[in-house]
Simulated assay, not measured.
Amino acid sequence: MKLRSLLFVPGDSERKFGRANDCGADALILDLEDSVAPAKKASARDLAANLIDAKNQRNWQFFVRVNALDTGLTLEDLVAVVRPGLDAIMVPKANGAADIERIGHYLDALEAKAGMPQGAVRLAVVATETAKAMFSLGAYQPAHPRLVALTWGAEDLSAALGATDNKEPDGAWTFPYQVARAQCLFAAAAAEVKPIDTVFVDFRDSQGLESDCRRSRRDGFTGRMAIHPDQVAIINRCYAPSKGEIEHARKIIAAFDANPGAGTLGVDGKMVDIPHLKAARKTLASI
């Protein structure tokens, strides 16, 4: 499942969903949670179900972000949207792997009811939105069979901590949120699932987004969530390997293939070893 760009779309707006359809995102996340007012939750569920049923031609993954387990709305959301055509559920405000196990049991039953293969609906988790979650990130490994990605969020965590702000004057994350970001990255790597970076909220600042995405990919994130269609092309470009990176990765793999007993080799005038080989394989796998 390619997940460079995941675009949030309010679950109560068919117009915005229509605009997002051809923006080039790898996944559209129809949101039933924060972007939908309480009075519109039921109608948003109905719209989500209808959009999944439409089965229009598409080249992106269909995600739905359900409401958090502590709202009492999660099961109603799942009952409405688990049907053929749904690719994944995004779980917000998860406290740890036990929450994913619980939702996995719900999905087992709902897939059977809908005549879907067991495991057809995958899971992506917003893993840092509660204080409790920060002490549970190691529990995602070994990964649940449905788990494909971990991402992080700062706004709900800020509210949980009582923070007055989560950014420095220069726009950098303050220390608690640097920790959350790094821990999410480590947890995803340990679970061997995709690490997805959080949203860049100033959708008009394309230069800032590009710079931040390049830092993010440098650190190890493989994709990013978006809040506006105009962000998608930048995200896709930043998280895709360059021609030079692809060429270099192929050279490393070819060198080790030609010398299967070697632990260290010279490629393009530099010494490379097994970690470089692993990185090269990841680069080619991301194409």
Rank of each mutant, 00 (worst) to 15 (best):
L284V: 03
G119I: 04
L28C: 03
K243R: 15
A97W: 01
F63P: 00
A114S: 12
F203A: 04
I227K: 02
P169A: 14
H228W: 07
L75K: 13
F200W: 14
G96I: 06
A48I: 10
E101F: 09
G162Q: 13
P275Q: 04
V91W: 01
L161P: 05
G261K: 04
D219P: 00
A160Y: 08
G220H: 03
F17C: 06
L28T: 07
I246C: 09
M134Q: 11
R214F: 06
A120S: 13
A240S: 14
W152Q: 04
L137R: 03
S206R: 13
P241D: 05
A249N: 04
I252Q: 03
L277E: 01
K55A: 15
K278Q: 15
A255C: 06
A98Y: 08
A280C: 04
K113H: 14
G24F: 12
A49D: 04
D273H: 06
G244T: 10
G223H: 00
L6Y: 01
F175D: 10
G24A: 14
G269W: 11
D87S: 12
L265R: 05
A131I: 15
G11E: 14
N21C: 09
I274F: 10
A94Y: 01
K2F: 03
L265E: 07
R181H: 08
V179Y: 12
S158C: 09
E33R: 09
C184Q: 12
S136G: 07
P169T: 12
R45K: 11
H248R: 15
M116Q: 06
